[in-house]
Every structure is written in structure tokens, then in C-alpha cells.
Amino acid sequence: VCQVIAMYDYAANNEDELSFSKGQLINVMNKDDPDWWQGEINGVTGLFPSNYVKM
């Protein structure tokens, strides 16, 4: 598990995705897919595009 910072706002398009705002910290749970990582914010988990965040 690592933390990343959102570089942009992201609004989920599907129920399994994670919405976040620019500057939010996201706990990364899974990086099996290079493009879509699984993350957690405040107890909510979902997929998000890895190119929207930085380490």
C-alpha cells in the first residue's frame, strides 16, 4: 500500500470507480493493471486512472 496525490479532479463513470478532487491523498491498494489502480479514500474503494495521480 502506498499513497499518491491526485493531480486532477476525477468523476467516476461507473459504480466500481473512485471519484476524487485535485490534491486529495489516495491510498493505493492494487496496481495489477498499469492504467487503472484500485484505491481507497475515507473508507471508499474503487478504480481510478493511474495517469491522474503522482507519487
Rank of each mutant, 00 (worst) to 15 (best):
V44F: 07
Y8I: 14
N14V: 07
N27A: 11
Q38F: 09
S50M: 14
M7R: 07
P34F: 07
E17R: 12
N27S: 10
Q38T: 11
Q38M: 08
G46T: 01
P34C: 04
Y52L: 15
T45E: 10
F48R: 00
T45A: 10
N27R: 11
V53D: 02
N42S: 12
V1K: 15
A12I: 03
V44C: 12
P34G: 12
S50G: 07
W37F: 05
D33I: 07
I41T: 12
L47T: 13
M7H: 06
N51F: 05
F20C: 02
Y10L: 03
A6Y: 00
V28C: 08
C2N: 15
M29F: 10
V44M: 04
P34Y: 05
Q3G: 04
L18C: 03
L25P: 06
G46A: 06
N14P: 02
F20V: 03
I5L: 06
Q38A: 13
V1S: 04
N27E: 15
K31R: 09
Q24W: 11
G46I: 00
D16W: 06
Q3Y: 12
C2Q: 07
M55V: 07
Y10V: 03
V1M: 04
D35H: 10
V53M: 03
K31V: 15
M7I: 14
G23T: 04
F20H: 00
N42V: 07
M7V: 09
T45S: 13
A12S: 09
Y52S: 09
D32F: 04
V4P: 00
I41W: 05
C2M: 06
D33F: 04
E17C: 07
K54V: 05
A12W: 02
N27G: 06
Y10E: 01
L25A: 07
Y52E: 04
D32Y: 08
N51Y: 09
L18Q: 02
Y52N: 07
N51G: 12
Y8L: 13
M55L: 07
I41Y: 14
G39N: 01
E15G: 13
T45P: 08
E17W: 03
Q24L: 04
M7N: 08
I5A: 06
K31G: 12
S21E: 08
S50F: 05
G23L: 03
W36L: 12
Y52T: 09
V4S: 09
S21W: 06
D32C: 08
I5H: 04
K31S: 14
A6R: 01
G43H: 12
V1F: 15
F48C: 04
G39D: 02
M55T: 09
W37L: 03
V28L: 10
L18R: 00
Q24V: 08
V44P: 03
Y8Q: 08
Y10K: 05
I5F: 12
K31P: 15
I41N: 05
E40N: 05
G43R: 09
I26G: 01
W37R: 01
W37H: 03
K22Q: 15
V53P: 01
D35M: 07
P49T: 02
D35K: 09
K31T: 15
E40C: 11
Q24T: 12
I41K: 07
I5D: 05
D35Q: 07
V1P: 02
L18I: 13
S19W: 03
K31W: 06
D35A: 11
W36N: 12
W37S: 01
F20Y: 02
A6I: 00
K22P: 05
V28H: 01
S21V: 12
N13R: 15
Y8K: 15
L25N: 10
V44Y: 07
A6T: 15
E40G: 05
N27Q: 14
A12T: 11
D9V: 03
M55K: 04
V28R: 02
A6H: 00
E40V: 08
K22H: 05
N51K: 14
K22M: 06
S50E: 03
A11K: 14
G39V: 00
G46W: 01
E15V: 13
Y10S: 03
V44G: 14
E40M: 08
S21I: 10
A12N: 15
K31A: 15
Q24H: 05
I5C: 08
M7K: 06
A11C: 10
N13Q: 15
V53W: 00
K54I: 06
Q3I: 13
E15S: 13
L18A: 02
T45C: 08
G39L: 00
M29A: 12
L25C: 08
V28F: 01
M7S: 15
A6Q: 00
V44S: 10
V1W: 03
N14I: 07
M7W: 04
V4W: 08
P34M: 13
F48H: 00
W37E: 00
Q38L: 09
Q24P: 02
E40L: 05
L18N: 01
Q38V: 11
K22E: 11
Y10G: 02
I5P: 02
D32P: 15
L18T: 01
E15Q: 14
I5S: 06
Q24E: 13
P34E: 15
P49A: 04
T45H: 06
V4I: 02
G23M: 03
N27M: 12
N42R: 10
D9I: 02
L47Q: 12
V53T: 15
S19E: 04
S50Y: 06
S19P: 05
K54H: 09
N42Q: 08
G23R: 04
P49D: 02
E40R: 09
V53F: 03
A6N: 00
V53G: 06
E15I: 08
S21C: 10
S50L: 05
V28N: 00
E17S: 06
D32R: 10
D16E: 13
D16G: 12
N30A: 13
N42W: 05
N30C: 14
W36R: 12
Q3A: 09
I5T: 14
E15C: 10
N27I: 13
N13Y: 05
I5G: 03
A11W: 06
D16L: 11
N14Y: 10
